[in-house]
Each structure stands twice: as structure tokens, then as C-alpha cells.
Amino acid sequence: MKAPAPTTPHATGASREMTFAEAIREALAEEMRRDPTVFIIGEDVAEAGTPFKVLSGLVEEFGTGRVIDSPISEAGIAGLGVGAAMTGMRPVVDIMFGDFVTLIMDQIVNQAAKIHYMSGGKLKVPMVLRTTLGATRRSAAQHSQSLHAWLSHVPGLKVVLPSNPYDAKGLLKSAIRDDNPVVFFEDKMMYQLKGPVPAGDYTIPLGVAEIRRAGKDITLVATSSMVQVALSAADMLDKGGIGAEVIDVRTTAPLDKATIIESAKKTSRAVVLDEGYEGYSVIAEGAFYYLDAPVKRMGARSVPVPFSPVLEDQTVPTPESVVEAAKKLCGKL
């Protein structure tokens, strides 16, 4: 079965074959030409163009004032990015390996993600934090993790996971223009993957999944590196007579729940495929056929904790709200 028409508008520029890395570089270059407040800061981003050579050539065009080599101080450059973003700039902070987000957690989780909310909507943090994910590069435990789930868990952050060169360019442009802190994860194994990329300007909205391949028997919901895996699996399944529908989530925050739910309703089966660690869904996976109702999850409301008591008291489950949810599941409400 062929892929259905894309749900987001296609660009009009002439399409070229381009690698994922080139698509990222082109998005940055175009945005830096368009908007003088966009700048890049990170380790070895200028003349070296990063160890993956993703940024090669940018410093020649934009100079060291806008493509800034920093010390090896991840927390420091993330913090500088937050402050610069709050005061009129649009920084793109380069965190070489996704594993290093451990070093910047306070700046991204306690600062960037919460500043808009804590200030009652007055301050904004239009910052992009580009980093990588993905194993199988033989880089071992501290240079291979896919930690996007951690950050997808934090209200106030957007998390982007492009799976091909076309999306990489369009999603990065949207991320740079977004007024929120956006963490942009690039699969380092995908940098040399080629695909069609239109010349000129186009954006892909954050929060819209794409159905990469239609199928009627099972839904494969995939992110980033796992989209290619899902597509390969779908080919193999096809030969065995099973039609798999592949959904490329593209952003985990915001998450396009409607597209996923619609597909699952259609196929009635699903596999969720992600390179991060999977550790939950205990009952849904272990006791599904014994359930009389879907599992209801209750937790903190998806907001930073507000100070005002009238707001804060709504953010945590109470015995009353648990009773209400339980009664509903028991059909007694």
C-alpha cells in the first residue's frame, strides 16, 4: 500500500536529494539569513562545524559573532541560551550528544520550561536546543542514549524528533520560529541518510504526526530513528500478508494523539516503537484481556506547579478525584 497524501502542506521549491545533515544546515542558514536574532552557540560549532560536520560552512557565512564556539560547559551555554532568549534573541544551542542533557537539566527543566508559566505569561524563552540520539554507532554507554522521553515529560518544553531530511528542515524552521523552548533531537545515525528536500522556505507545524504508510491490520507508531525500522518491518510484514500502518509521530510534545487514536481504532492493533527505554504500561501489556475498562492514569496536571493555592490545589490527584475516576470505571457514575 502506498503512503497517503501528507497531512501537512508540501513546499513549492524545487526538490533536491540531500542528506539529513545538509537539510539541518540549510534550515539554519535560511533562518539566520531571515532573522538576525538567530545565532548558534556550542562546542566546536564554528570552524569544526561539529564532530558530525553538520554545521560546516555556516561560520564562513555568518561569522564567529553568530556561530559561537563555546567552552565545554553545557550547563553554561544552555543557561546563556535561556537568558539570551528571554531578552530578544533566538539562540540555537548545540549539545553535541544527547547524553549530555544530564548536564543541563536544571537550565532546561527548572528554568527554560517554567519561566513563561512562572512569570504569568510575561516572559518567553524562544530557544532551540539541538542534540542527538541513537545507538549502534559503537560509542558505548555515555554517547548513545535516546533521552527524549525525559524531556517530553516536562510541561513547557516541546520535543521534536525528525525522521528524514525533508522533515528535518521544515521542523527545525518551525522550532526556531516557535516562542517556546524546543528540544530538537537528531538521530546521529541518520546524518548521511538522503532524501528529497525542497529549496527555499517551508515549515512543518509542531504537533502534527504523519502517516508514512497506510495499512489496515496493525499500527506501528514510531519516532525518529525507529520510523525507518517501522517502514522496513512494514515491508516485511506486507510480504506475509499483514498490512502495517506506520505513523511518524514527529513531535512527542505536543503529541498528535488524534492521528494515533484514529489509526489504532482502524487497525485495532498497535506496536509503539521508540529508541528510548520502555518501562511502563504494565497492566495494558500484562493484563489487557482481564480488563473491563481502559486503565486510567492519574498524576500531576501537565503544568509547572503554580504558587496560588486556588491553582496549585488543582494539580494533584485527591481522594475525591480518585473516587470519581474509579466509580466511572466501575460504571457507577
Binding site: A75, G76, G79, L80, G83, T87, M89, P91, Q111
Partner: peptide, 25 residues
Amino acid sequence: NLGANAIVGGSAGIATGAAMSARMR
């Protein structure tokens, strides 16, 4: 006032980033 901060030392990056931004602008 870019905000009080309840993480000790947490605003050092923000203030320095604001200074960098002032320079760039």
C-alpha cells in the same frame, strides 16, 4: 527584572545570557 530564582545560582546563566544578548543587540 528577569526573575527571582529558587535554584541557588540558577540565574547565573540567565543573567550572563542577557548580557550576551545586550551585546549582540
